[in-house]
Structures are given as structure tokens and as C-alpha cells.
């Protein structure tokens, strides 16, 4: 003891391998994504909630009627992710956006691959870019991209 000592350091990973059941509603949504379809669910007020939820957000009653929605939509609001962290859906800088799909009345959160924040505006139309290999996961939507927009 006494002489200078170089401190050790080592990676330490604490991981929980959660395996959860989806229930019939989320399960149907993910099944649809695997098949390149998007479904929402009709609320008591006939509004379409997408991604679908099991219970009406206002009345709490169980919802049962799935509704097909579009694979294009409108960016309602967004934030730019300049520094990409491990585990994020895209490995290059991208937008995190709330996207109102055609036929839906609520927006879903996903990423938009558009190169730079200058290329994206609220109100832009975007469409789904599907992952080549799909397994029934939200990542079956690789990302959204601008419709007709050059990057």
C-alpha cells in the first residue's frame, strides 16, 4: 500500500429478460404489423385509438372492434435525436414524432428517418418503412419516412 494505484473499472450489466403476454388487443396490433397492416380500435365515441387500447380512455369500458388504419400519416409534433444511444430504433440521428395515421384519431409515437431536423416540419406527411424481417413487434415498423420528400 502507499504507491499510486490505477483504479480498476469494468462493465457491469444488469438485465431483466422480461417476457410478457400481450393480451388480445395488443396481440392483434402486433400480428397486424407482422403482416404490414396497422389496426386501431374503435372507442365508445367512435373515435379510433391507434395503437389500440384494451379499455376506452374516457369510459373505461372494454373495447372490441379493431379498425384498419392507413400506413401513412401526419407528423403532429416531433423532437430531434442528435445523439443516438444504444437500443434506439435507428442508429443515425432521427426524429421522435407523434404521427397521426390516416383513419386514426390518436397519434402514435415512432421515429422518422429524414436525415436532418431541417428536413422535417410539423404537418409533414410520412409513411411506414417496414422492416425486412418482421416478428410481431413495434420494431416491425423500421421507421417512418417523408412522403415525396427527398432526403
Amino acid at each position: 500500500m502507499g504507491e499510486p494505484l490505477e483504479l480498476l473499472s469494468a462493465p457491469l450489466v444488469i438485465e431483466y429478460p422480461f417476457n410478457r403476454t400481450t393480451g388480445p388487443v395488443i396481440g392483434a396490433f402486433l400480428t397486424g404489423l407482422r403482416d404490414q397492416r396497422v389496426v386501431g380500435i374503435e372507442g365508445d365515441d367512435r373515435r379510433v385509438v391507434c395503437p389500440p387500447v384494451e379499455y376506452d380512455p374516457h369510459t373505461g369500458s372494454p373495447l372490441t372492434d379493431l379498425v384498419a388504419v392507413g400506413t401513412e400519416g401526419v407528423v403532429q409534433t416531433w423532437a430531434w435525436v442528435e445523439t443516438v444511444r444504444e437500443g434506439q430504433p435507428l442508429q443515425q440521428p432521427h426524429a421522435l414524432a407523434l404521427i397521426l395515421l390516416d383513419g386514426a384519431d390518436t397519434a402514435m409515437l415512432h421515429v422518422v428517418d429524414c436525415g436532418s431536423p431541417d428536413a422535417l416540419s410539423t404537418g409533414d406527411r410520412v409513411r411506414i418503412r417496414w422492416a425486412e424481417e418482421r416478428s410481431g413487434s413495434i420494431c416491425d415498423i423500421e421507421c417512418f419516412e417523408r412522403v415525396g420528400g427527398e432526403q
Binding site: P11, L12, I14, P24, A28, R37, A68, S137
Partner: peptide
Amino acid sequence: INDAALGVSADVEQIQRIRIPAAVRYDY
């Protein structure tokens, strides 16, 4: 639920479980 909008036949196996690992990574 009425999943007619899915457009999948009854014999297609629907998603019932997903793996969602969560990890925290430290430099110890």
C-alpha cells in the same frame, strides 16, 4: 374482440407474447 380488420385467417397464429429485455449498463 372483432379482429376482422386484421384480415388474417383464423389459422394464423397471433402474437401472444413478446420479449422486452431491459438493461442498465454501468462502468463499475
